[in-house]
């Protein structure tokens, strides 16, 4: 069953020089449970796709559909509650890591989802020490931050994952572990933006971004 579809979506942004086209006529359709890797050179607009799905960026034309329903503001708020968005520059906060968990699980949508046992198991699973919880988030390394963000998204029981370069700061063994983890669940829909070849596995659909849009701000050349 189809979960996300984008039809002829174009995005322009305003800057000092006026309206600037990011891309036009994007077509993407993703089925529930699918694992999709979106590739393409930097600056081509891949991250914008995730922003479109979350309603953070509005298309200048075209339609976005979730499970066949055309997206409206209410639907985007629903999608945000089902979707985990983890990105390279995920800025989830500052202060002790445990306090961040406290904040996230105080949101009405997440109340009752916290389990100390699950947290312990996930820390172990992602090779983090228990004492990471008492450290300040801003003092963690890039790889530790990414894993904390992954753990939070797993504990909030999402079923759609938008993963933007989340393995870039991890070592080879951890990359494999994270990839295994996200590909293992048939019920999860996972969209990945990454340059890491670890994601190119059997069962992962690879989309070359340049081929699903008709124009980008950097010209019509196909991506590498």
């Amino acid at each position: 069953m189809e979960i996300i579809r984008m039809e002829r979506v174009s995005v322009t942004v305003k800057d000092e020089t006026g309206d600037k086209l990011i891309f036009s006529d994007l077509h993407i359709s993703v089925d529930r449970g699918e694992k999709v890797l979106i590739r393409g050179r930097s600056g081509i607009g891949k991250t914008t796709v995730f922003r479109l799905i979350l309603g953070f960026t509005r298309p200048s034309s075209g339609g976005i559909y979730f499970e066949g329903r055309r997206a409206d503001p209410d639907l985007f708020w629903e999608v945000r509650k089902r979707t985990a968005h983890i990105s390279q520059d995920s800025d989830i906060g500052e202060g002790p890591v445990m306090a961040l968990f406290g904040e996230v699980f105080s949101y009405s949508a997440n109340r009752g989802k916290f389990s100390r046992d699950d947290l312990g198991a996930l820390l172990l699973g992602f090779s983090l020490q228990e004492d990471v919880l008492t450290k300040k988030f801003e003092n963690l390394s890039g790889g530790e931050k990414q894993r904390i963000a992954i753990i939070i998204s797993l504990m909030t029981k999402k079923d759609i994952f938008l993963l933007d370069e989340i393995t870039s700061d991890l070592d080879a063994a951890l990359k494999e572990k994270v990839v295994d983890f996200f590909l293992a669940r048939p019920e999860w829909t996972v969209l990945v933006i990454s340059h890491d070849p670890e994601w190119e596995r059997e069962g992962v659909r690879i989309i070359d971004f340049a081929e699903v849009v008709s124009k980008t701000k950097v010209g019509k050349h196909a991506g590498q």
Partner: peptide
């Protein structure tokens, strides 16, 4: 801190929850 606000929204926060800090 727009990124942080958006992160909170994608972590399931309602607008008022994400803006509280």
């Amino acid at each position: 801190n727009e990124n942080r606000y958006l992160s909170r929204l994608s972590l399931g926060a309602e607008k008022h929850e994400a803006l509280m800090p």
